[in-house]
């Protein structure tokens, strides 16, 4: 029971990170109907920017943890957003009127570019960061096993909830959110009604990348080590989460993230850890094949 509870806590933490990335996939799919294959790598770039920003702040003497965290969060979100914007501008926008699979192919190309760029610029070795947020609370213990919720876990869940809340307001209460939904429904009609479609799509990528940067920072804090390859598998998992939750649905992405995080944690806890990634890929295949509309998605009727 105690073990189960501990895994539940771990799963929710991991799921929060996946959920934040999944939103990027789901928004982009919703608005332009493409799988932004490079999004996982944008998350990876975000994690690297966060790491370097931390080190830079330490070097110039800003060591107060809350202040450093806040600054790093802002820097990572802004700079990663620029990456997201650039990827869209360079690789996807020119292909908007091309055949459907064309942007998927450039997305794969972009993913390769980002991975190898970081590998060249920062080296292939794993990058450790000494723990920044430490400590935690023991909830209770059962025999020799104690259930612990660490401060970093609290920070991750709290940040996710806060960011999600702000994001929710942004999408539902502002002009941008309305423009986004209009583009999702009918891009041509939206353009005719005066929505700047290009700008809306760009902003979607910027927002998605910003959230991915938050996820990157949290991932860095949680695991304490990153490398240039983390984007691939984490991206796949987050994409699975997005589909599972119902692609195009933002609450769905968060829900899917939580479920995928829980599944992964429990799989590793109760089954074999070597096949952890097989579990992730199998989940992806199963979800796509059997639940392509997801939990909160809209069913699609084949148009004849």
């Amino acid at each position: 029971m105690a073990y189960f509870l501990q895994q539940l806590i771990n799963g929710v933490t991991l799921g929060s990170i996946y959920g934040l990335i999944a939103i990027g996939y789901t928004m982009v799919y919703g608005i332009i109907g493409m799988i932004n294959f490079a999004h996982g790598d944008v998350f990876m770039v975000g994690a690297f920017i966060a790491l370097i920003a931390f080190l830079a702040l330490t070097t110039i003497g800003i060591t107060a943890v809350p202040l450093a965290l806040l600054l790093v969060l802002i820097i990572a979100m802004v700079l990663t957003a620029v990456w997201g914007w650039t990827v869209e501008r360079v690789a996807y926008r020119p292909l908007r009127e091309s055949f459907r699979l064309a942007p998927l192919i450039t997305a794969i190309g972009m993913s390769i570019v980002l991975q190898n760029f970081i590998q060249i610029a920062q080296g292939a070795r794993v990058k450790p960061l000494q723990p920044i947020v430490t400590g935690g609370y023991e909830l209770f213990h059962q025999g020799s096993f104690s259930v612990i919720v660490s401060n970093i876990q609290i920070l991750i869940v709290a940040t996710t909830v806060l960011v999600m809340g702000a994001f929710w307001l942004l999408i539902n209460r502002t002009e941008l959110g309305r423009a986004q939904r209009a583009c999702e429904q009918d891009r041509l009609m939206a353009a005719l009604s005066g929505v700047d479609v290009d700008r809306t799509i760009s902003l979607t990528f910027v927002l998605g990348a910003g959230l991915a940067a938050v996820a990157g920072l949290l991932y860095l804090l949680y695991y304490g080590v990153i490398d240039f390859f983390i984007g691939f598998v984490v991206g796949i998992k987050a994409f699975t989460a997005a589909v599972f939750g119902g692609i195009g649905s933002i609450p769905g992405a968060m829900l899917g993230g939580l479920i995928i995080g829980l599944i992964e944690t429990f799989w590793s806890a109760y089954f074999t850890i070597e096949y952890k990634d097989v579990a992730a890929f199998s989940m992806l295949a199963i979800v796509l094949i059997f639940f392509p509309t997801g939990l909160l998605g809209r069913p699609e009727v084949e148009k004849v």
Binding site: L79, F117, P128
Partner: peptide, 21 residues
């Protein structure tokens, strides 16, 4: 500049005390 300032302009290197820039 925004893209490359941190990820290219600063390189993380291993040192005795952990990562440095």
């Amino acid at each position: 500049f925004a893209l490359f300032s941190l990820v290219l302009g600063l390189r993380t290197v291993d040192s005795a005390t952990g990562l440095t820039l």
